[in-house]
Design a protein around this nucleic acid. Sequence first.
DNA 1: ATGACTGCAAAGGGTTTGCATTGAA
DNA 2: TTCAATGCAAACCCTTTGCAGTCAT
Lengths: 135, 135
Amino acid sequence: MRRNTAQRQTVHRAVALLDHPSAEAVYRQVKEMDPQIGLATVYRNINILAEEGQIQRLIVPGQAERYDADARDHYHYLCDTCGRIYDVKMPYRPELNEEFAPGVGQNIRTHTILFQGVCKECRQKEDEDGSDSTL
Amino acid sequence: MRRNTAQRQTVHRAVALLDHPSAEAVYRQVKEMDPQIGLATVYRNINILAEEGQIQRLIVPGQAERYDADARDHYHYLCDTCGRIYDVKMPYRPELNEEFAPGVGQNIRTHTILFQGVCKECRQKEDEDGSDSTL
DNA sequence: ATGACTGCAAAGGGTTTGCATTGAA
DNA sequence: TTCAATGCAAACCCTTTGCAGTCAT
């Protein structure tokens, strides 16, 4: 029987409070809410919450795993420059699963899409840096 | 100036020979072709080949990175049970990039799709195990 | 002769695990 | 009372790095 401890609730709230945080970021947030809490507890609870489908685990190239308090299926965008993750408004397309399943006779439970590029904010910074460049 | 060493060629051939191998698997294969080679050399060359676009790096949940000698854009399917990665025949859809870009004003360089489920082979094994179950 | 590359071993980042203890049911 | 959960430290896995030596150009 699972125990729904104060720590677990705190971890869940911390994930919801932050924007696609890493475990480390969750830990920092959680520490402010409950300085007693340990890193292992954060990891353990993140894993339990993900397993229960209450949060979503995102894996991104070259970085620690990130978490998303919005557990509904949706797509993500990763900025190649700042590493930030954005939610993509494009609606989830369950039909993509059927579209490829028949051919291979495979069973598809889900799919994820990760878009990548340089986000608006980073491109603006680049522009500024460009015009400011008075070598 | 890059040197295109024997080791680099061996690593490239090993990746091509195997089916979405991990670095560890590449290392084992490479060892058979050239027992002298070191693990760090495999990692360094994998990174160089990926950087040059000659192979593709795949990241999958809960596993080491995998590599694909087919560097062309295509989608992948990960079996939740055996962890094997399959190429998906569904053609790449560059239009997905435009489809979401206008709304957010984001710049999209590329996207990846990872399908997940239990592969045909694993489902057959499950069936066999099921019918054999004579508790 | 140069400097990119190598092999080795050690270090690094991120995550999990063992253990004695605590606390929710 | 019980056993899931905690906090801590150590262990773990995967990957990168420092270094002295090597080899292609």
